[in-house]
Design a protein around this nucleic acid. Structure first.
Lengths: 190, 190
DNA sequence: TCATACACTTACTTATCGGTAAGTAAGCAA
DNA sequence: TTGCTTACTTACCGATAAGTAAGTGTATGA
């Protein structure tokens, strides 16, 4: 009957990632995932016994993706400004998908997340802020960036610009996000 | 039996505002409100037939509050920097309450909100961004603020710093928000 | 070929969701 | 006193949530 999925579990994970960013943790259900895969609810439970397990895997996947990006940028010969732009580019992509970033999603739902994943969420956020912070510091040392705050605080400013930027852009339009993006880069190379 | 509420409807509204900021639209129920008032679910429906009606009133209340703040600041003799700090102060208050701002809450849940309130949400966000924008413009004309972006873009940068700042602060701690707050002001008076 | 593991489905449970219908006690107005 | 309104409660509704137990077909490996 239904065509054989080569890897159902990763299909579930991928859909969950999309739903997390489009709707948030509390607004999607196993039924939403099952429907998209032409499967039954229980099939999702087979792969992920509980919703918390699914969320945990989503978070871990993002952690792995960001670590991957970190490595990839480390071995590249991009300068700090290009590295930062690679990072910002991840956010631009979300705009056309009616999505927000995973960090904004889990941060705004934080009080309602299962306790078992809260530490992982904190880990993801720490990782991403740390990446931006490091890039800023390197860029400053290279003379590519100029800013007065500590690298960490500047990273916080940029992260919040991006995270809330994609949230706002869903409502006020893509142009606002583009302007934010532009301003972030301009501010650093003043 | 239960002590007479002087104004049940406004009590419901007040609780709904808290729940919106602590949990988000999809994560609270009429039962949550009823429980806190020692009433039954149906009593909430008496005052607000549907959840969309309740949300609409929440949004309208915030619109009224911000208009009120706007007027209040207009007749005050505060300079633009003090006006901005009044505005930022609204966000600092949220930190201790484990809450995010209403704008961040509705923006991240936007895809799941009833269509009937989406326009109101856009109105609220436009209002608030406009207020910040105007304050920035005035401050620049007064020579109090210095910035290179348009007032609107600068307003977007500040709004996103604040909105995502309170989201992150729930996870990484209050100190990060304080640093963001400080940086916003410092950047403008350089 | 036989058994076992895998990847599901069928069929269910329990709890909660937003929402409604009907009833009721208390107050107010003519 | 009667009639109407307000502000609820009681008792439901159908839908959906997350989750579970048991069964089924298929592939694989001994």
């Amino acid at each position: 009957m239904s065509e054989k999925q080569p890897d159902t579990k990763s299909a579930i994970l991928s859909i969950a990632k999309d739903l997390m960013r489009q709707l948030g943790y509390n607004a999607f259900s196993y039924a939403d995932i099952a429907r998209r895969l032409n499967m039954k609810n229980a099939a999702i439970h087979y792969h992920y016994p509980g919703k918390a397990d699914l969320l945990a895997d989503v978070i871990e996947t993002y952690i792995a993706e960001y670590r991957q990006l970190e490595k990839q940028l480390a071995v590249s010969n991009l300068d700090s400004c290009q590295k930062l732009q690679q990072f910002i580019g991840k956010y631009s992509q979300l705009i056309g998908q009616n999505s927000i970033c995973i960090i904004g999603s889990v941060a705004s739902d934080y009080n309602t997340l299962p306790d078992s994943v809260k530490a992982k969420v904190a880990g993801l956020i720490g990782l991403v802020i740390g990446m931006v912070e490091k890039t800023l510091q390197e860029g400053r040392e290279e003379g590519v960036f100029r800013f007065r705050e500590t690298p960490r605080v500047r990273a916080l400013l940029i992260m919040t610009n991006l995270a809330a930027g994609v949230q706002l852009a869903r409502i006020t339009g893509k142009a606002d996000f583009i302007a934010i993006e532009q301003a972030i880069v301009d501010q650093l190379s003043k």
